[in-house]
Design a protein around this nucleic acid. Sequence first.
RNA 1: GUGGGUGUAGUUCAGUGGUUAGAGCGCCAGAUUGUGGCUCUGGAAGUCGUGGGUUCAACUCCCAUCACCCACCCCA
Length: 420
Amino acid sequence: MEIQSPKGTRDMLPKESHLWQWIEQIMREEAALAGYREIRTPVFEYTELFERGVGDTTDIVQKEMYTFLDKGERSITLKPEGTAGAVRALVEHKLYAEPLPVKMYYLNNPIFRYENPQHGRLREHHQFGMECFGVKGPTADAEVILTVLKILGRLGMKDLAVKINSIGCPVCRPNYQKALKEYLFDNLPNLCPQCQERFNRNPLRILDCKEKKCQLITRDAPNILQFLCEDCDSHFERLKVLLNERGLKVSIDPQIVRGLDYYTKTVFEIVMNSPRGELALCGGGRYDGLVKKIGGPELPGVGFGIGTERILLELQNQGIAPEEQRVTDVFIASLGEEGRLPAFDLCMDLRNAGLRADWDHLDRSLKAQFRYADKLGVKLIGIMGGDELQKGALRIKNMLDGQEKEVSLKDAVQEIKTLL
RNA sequence: GUGGGUGUAGUUCAGUGGUUAGAGCGCCAGAUUGUGGCUCUGGAAGUCGUGGGUUCAACUCCCAUCACCCACCCCA
């Protein structure tokens, strides 16, 4: 039986790597423009980090983590999201002692969730994320939202919907939870079994249940935005002003509650309309209690994660993925045994001069070498045959117009450089 | 985790109980003497996902298993 890549994983092949590199370059540039520096944290962490950070009532922790005991009997978990590891590193290295705010991004971190793969969902996927620590006010929320939108804009994406909401803080959320539970209590038997369980553990999650009967019930549920305390309410209002100021159209969606427990105040999602329906491309929000929960000081934070595979999907949906550019510029063809060594030599000299040059590794006929070079899409072919060798010359053919010229071998590198 | 569909050359697919399993594209080579794209000709390439079973005979029928696709759940 042929060994395959594990279920829910994909190989990134050489022919598609240019897309990843293109996306990564834009992400790096925009993060840098906003003053964020890269952090790289381990692919695995102690399980406890996610139980404490992400929250043990979440689906992620309850049923989707890759958790195992290592040989020292430590419980290890492959990262199921990006924020917890960044926060752990912040606390462990006391980065909060540096000038605030501390701004960092992670680029295409592998993320693992044990789920059944389907459209736009893998067991291993990659996320870019930004985290800003130490800012209480909504300017940081606005900064990360605007930055990710700028990235998506530079990638050429259109028609993405931005949804925001506020889910309050430990001061006001209990009041809302109480009101929500009172409202739901009479309908409790009519909720789906899962929501009945959520009722006690995490009633907010009932709001984004996809079951029709639950949605009917929650449609007229109390609106969390009406329960926000003064602090949360003013934060949300000021955020809307900031986004509005930059001309950003966002929709307020009180149903967004997010699947991670650490969020406070702002939560947001960017969704795309794939042919198969709405798919979240980016999710994030504010997590003011998380740093303390992980063992650090009282330090607010806000950030997001965005899935690179889903960006690629959306680029394909919109038909805007760029073509791969030419990989090799010049090919040195040789004729006969005596031509091989000089061709090899010239090819290496061209590379040393900074040109993308290749030659025939497979001892093929001249015709086959031309066919191969054409498939590579090279602009120039240098021909090293018996005639040229005798004269100490190189014949250069321009593959775009078919023109040929002969130059002296010692000028060949310079000549090719100017022709490219 | 639950339900539905699919699995045949590198790839997209055809085949359907009965000889040596086919096609397009791709790959390799040739079309007189040192030259790509177009055309023509030829060639290589498959233990028909894997393991069992039924049968004189299985790519074809049955069972199991694995993977992929889709839906649910949830999410990026």
